[in-house]
C-alpha cells in the first residue's frame, strides 16, 4: 500500500506547489487548483486511513507512520473547514508546506502493519490518540497563522514592504485566526490529556505517573492555557500570542517525537 500512500504524498506536494505558485503570482487559477488538489489528497488520505483500519483490524494510530499521517489528515480537514467558514488570504501557502513535511515524515517511517501490542488493546486507544492528534492538527494551523502574523507585523513595523505585505491578510484577521485555532485545539488537547489519564488509570492503575510524555503534554497544555488566559484577562494578543503559539507548537512536536525518540518512557512503544 506504500504506492497508494506515495500517491497521496504527491497529491499534497502538488497542492503545495499550486499554493506557493498562487502566493507568488496571485493567479486565481492556481488557487482553485490548490484547493481541488488538497481536497483530492484529503479524500484519498481518508480512504487510506479507513483501509488501514480494516487491514490492521484495529485503530491505525499505533506507530509513528500512522500517528503523523493522522495528524496531517486532521490538519488538512481542519484547514479546509476553515476555508469553508471564512477566507484567510494565502493561509494555504503556509499550511500546505507543513502538511507535506508531515507527510514526508510519515512516508519515510515504517509503514508496516503490526499486531496490536497488548498494552494498547483498549477502547481508549481510538479516543485518546485521535483527540491528541486532532489537537496537534489545529495547533499546527495556529502555528502557521502565528508565523504569518510575525512576518506581517515585521513588515508593517519596519515599514519595508516586501513580498509578504500585500499577500498576507490583515493583522487583525491573523490574530483572530490564532484565537480561532486555539479555541478548537486547546479543548481537544485537554480532552486528549484527560482521556489519556483515564486510560492510564485503567491500564496502569494510576491517573498520572509523570512519565516523560505525560510531563511534556502537561507543559504544552500550560503554554496554551497561558495564551488563552492572558488573552482574556490582559489582552495578550498579536505578536506575543503569535510567539507563544509558536513555542507551544514546538512543545507539542516535542511531546509527539522528542519524548518518544529521545527520552523514552512507558509511552515509547508508539515508535
Amino acid at each position: 500500500m506504500s504506492a497508494f500512500f506515495l500517491l497521496i504524498l504527491i497529491g499534497y506536494l502538488l497542492a503545495t506547489s499550486a499554493s506557493v505558485a498562487h502566493f507568488i503570482t496571485q493567479e486565481k487559477n492556481a488557487q482553485q487548483a490548490a484547493r481541488a488538489l488538497l481536497i483530492g489528497a484529503g479524500v484519498l488520505h481518508t480512504v487510506y486511513f479507513v483501509w488501514r483500519y480494516f487491514a490492521a483490524g484495529h485503530t491505525p494510530l499505533t506507530n509513528n507512520h500512522e500517528a503523523v499521517s493522522f495528524f496531517a489528515l486532521a490538519m488538512t480537514w481542519g484547514f479546509l473547514s476553515f476555508r469553508w467558514r471564512y477566507q484567510v488570504k494565502n493561509f494555504g501557502a503556509f499550511v500546505t508546506p507543513l502538511l507535506t513535511g508531515l507527510m514526508l515524515v510519515a512516508f519515510f517511517s515504517s509503514q508496516k502493519i503490526h499486531d496490536l501490542p497488548p498494552a494498547l488493546q483498549s477502547k481508549w486507544l481510538p479516543v485518546h490518540a485521535s483527540m491528541a492528534l486532532m489537537a496537534n492538527g489545529f495547533l499546527a494551523l495556529a502555528f502557521c497563522g502565528g508565523l504569518m502574523y510575525l512576518i506581517q507585523e515585521k513588515e508593517i513595523k519596519k515599514k519595508r514592504f516586501g513580498l509578504f505585505y500585500s499577500r498576507l491578510p490583515s493583522l487583525d484577521a491573523l490574530d483572530n485566526l490564532n484565537h480561532h485555532c486555539l479555541s478548537i485545539g486547546f479543548p481537544l488537547l485537554t480532552m486528549g490529556i484527560i482521556t489519556g489519564s483515564l486510560w492510564a488509570k485503567q491500564a496502569w492503575g494510576a491517573y498520572w505517573q509523570w512519565d516523560p510524555k505525560e510531563t511534556w503534554s502537561l507543559i504544552t497544555w500550560f503554554i496554551y492555557a497561558a495564551i488563552l488566559h492572558q488573552r482574556l484577562t490582559v489582552g495578550w494578543r498579536g505578536k506575543r500570542a503569535a510567539i507563544m503559539t509558536i513555542i507551544g507548537f514546538s512543545a507539542a512536536l516535542f511531546t509527539l517525537w522528542g519524548v518518544t525518540f529521545l527520552l523514552g518512557g512507558i509511552h515509547s512503544y508508539v515508535g
Binding site: 505585505y165 500585500s166 490583515s170 493583522l171 487583525d172 484577521a173
Partner: peptide, 20 residues
C-alpha cells in the same frame, strides 16, 4: 491596487492592521 496619495496610503495601512 496601489495607494498613490498620502491619505490613501494611510487608509491602506489601517486596513492591513485592522482588517475591517
Amino acid at each position: 491596487s496601489s495607494a498613490v496619495s498620502i491619505s490613501y496610503a494611510a487608509v491602506e495601512l489601517a486596513k492591513k492592521i485592522f482588517g475591517e
